[in-house]
Amino acid sequence: MALNTPQITPTKKITVRAIGEELPRGDYQRCPQCDMLFSLPEINSHQSAYCPRCQAKIRDGRDWSLTRLAAMAFTMLLLMPFAWGEPLLHIWLLGIRIDANVMQGIWQMTKQGDAITGSMVFFCVIGAPLILVTSIAYLWFGNRLGMNLRPVLLMLERLKEWVMLDIYLVGIGVASIKVQDYAHIQAGVGLFSFVALVILTTVTLSHLNVEELWERFYPQRPATRRDEKLRVCLGCHFTGYPDQRGRCPRCHIPLRLRRRHSLQKCWAALLASIVLLLPANLLPISIIYLNGGRQEDTILSGIMSLASSNIAVAGIVFIASILVPFTKVIVMFTLLLSIHFKCQQGLRTRILLLRMVTWIGRWSMLDLFVISLTMSLINRDQILAFTMGPAAFYFGAAVILTILAVEWLDSRLLWDAHESGNARFDD
């Protein structure tokens, strides 16, 4: 018995066209964080690309023209004298008006014999932002004059995390709450300039795509075929072959399989920071003279006294001054041990922890910024005066060393310790 099946006739004509040209192939790229070699397709503007294995951002879609970056830099340069030299806060102490600005706080630190601690604050609040705007201006002028731009481009990517104007702005709020127990506070004209400078700096850093600047100024022929001998440069993120001198053909720094002496430098910085954190938390970090009496505060006791007036601000200072430094030390110690013992479990967790400490590390400088600003506000000789204690130097040095330890660690070593050939990683 035959089955009668109805015929289905399409209502619209289906047209099949042959592909007349070869589909576009992607360029081969190595991930600078996990060293995976993959094919990167062509990316349009405002599109980002991520590593298929570790999800690290390979290409950032946010990109401004150099002219727009230069305009932002010149605007920031105009704001800087007002943000640093004009009063941020006014207080009335014992019937006398006192003005506080950024430069005055750094000068008070240096004047009291601790120039190293003052230079830490100076670099993060004044030096690094000033280098940022002058570097962008150098790129703008240098591109037109045919100057060598490689050193500036190499420095810009590392400079971003040292620009800490946003953290200093939080420190202004913390210092205001600490001082309000002794005097009446009012915002100064410099505060508005400083807030504007923070906003412009944040926007500029978020749109400063150094890798795209490398592509514009020093374009290189990408690798179009897969080759395990391809290496990625950690300076400019170019994937290719080393030249005859073993250097990256684009930025001219040595092109090595792994960062040289990464573990040794990381261990040295980490152990030194552990040693410095002990006096930083045991010795007094601030000293207040009130009517001839002397009151010393460690980091913890200062947080407890701050909690009596504002528990939320005390929580912020606790996280930045105690929780973050010790968390960074514990995480980095764990990561280094996992590399030495070739741990194969929990790779995803370790990668996330490394990215976390990379982002939060700079916030530990908050305590030094609060001390710097408070020193310029309260300084009335023996009637009422505020000065920093010996722990300030140890704390600042420990924070900087932990930042350097994270920067010096080559994250690809975590993958080397893991089993080879993993296309995915999980716990």
Rank of each mutant, 00 (worst) to 15 (best):
I8H: 12
T9D: 13
K12P: 11
K13M: 07
G20M: 09
G20I: 08
E21W: 13
Y28A: 13
Q29N: 10
Q29D: 08
R30V: 11
L40D: 05
P41S: 11
E42H: 09
C54P: 00
K57I: 11
K57M: 13
I58Y: 11
R59S: 08
G61D: 15
D63T: 15
W64A: 09
S65L: 06
S65E: 04
T67E: 05
L69V: 14
A71S: 11
A73L: 14
M76V: 05
M80G: 12
A83R: 02
W84F: 13
L89N: 07
L89D: 07
H90L: 07
L94V: 05
I96N: 02
V102E: 02
G105I: 03
I106V: 09
W107R: 11
Q108I: 14
T110G: 11
K111L: 03
Q112D: 06
Q112R: 05
G118I: 01
S119E: 04
M120E: 03
G127I: 01
A128T: 12
A128N: 00
L132N: 04
V133W: 02
W140T: 15
N143R: 15
N143I: 14
N148S: 06
L149K: 05
P151A: 06
V152D: 01
L153C: 12
L154E: 02
L156I: 13
E157K: 14
R158L: 15
R158Q: 15
E161M: 12
E161P: 15
V163F: 11
L165D: 15
D166M: 14
I167Q: 06
Y168L: 15
I172V: 10
G173A: 07
I177K: 05
K178L: 00
Q180C: 14
Q186H: 08
G188Y: 06
F192P: 05
F194Q: 12
T201R: 14
S206D: 05
H207V: 15
H207N: 13
L208C: 13
E215L: 13
D227A: 07
K229Y: 07
R231T: 06
C233W: 00
G235F: 03
R247P: 05
P249M: 04
H252M: 03
P254S: 08
R259G: 12
S262Y: 01
Q264C: 01
C266S: 08
C266E: 02
W267G: 15
L270N: 10
L276G: 10
L278D: 07
P279D: 06
P279N: 07
A280N: 04
N281E: 09
L283P: 02
I285A: 03
Y289G: 02
R294G: 03
E296D: 05
S301H: 07
N310D: 11
I311W: 11
A312R: 15
I316T: 15
V317I: 14
V317K: 00
A320H: 01
I322H: 03
L323S: 12
P325S: 05
T327L: 13
T327S: 12
V331K: 12
F333I: 13
T334H: 11
S338D: 12
L347G: 15
R348C: 12
R350A: 11
I351S: 09
L352N: 10
L353M: 12
R355W: 14
W359H: 09
R362E: 05
W363L: 03
D367Y: 00
L368K: 02
L377H: 01
R380G: 01
Q382W: 11
I383P: 01
L384E: 00
L384F: 10
P390I: 06
P390L: 07
G396S: 04
A398H: 05
V399Y: 01
T402A: 01
I403E: 01
I403M: 11
V406G: 07
S411V: 08
S411Y: 06
L413T: 07
W415A: 09
G421E: 08
A423R: 08
D426G: 15
D427W: 11
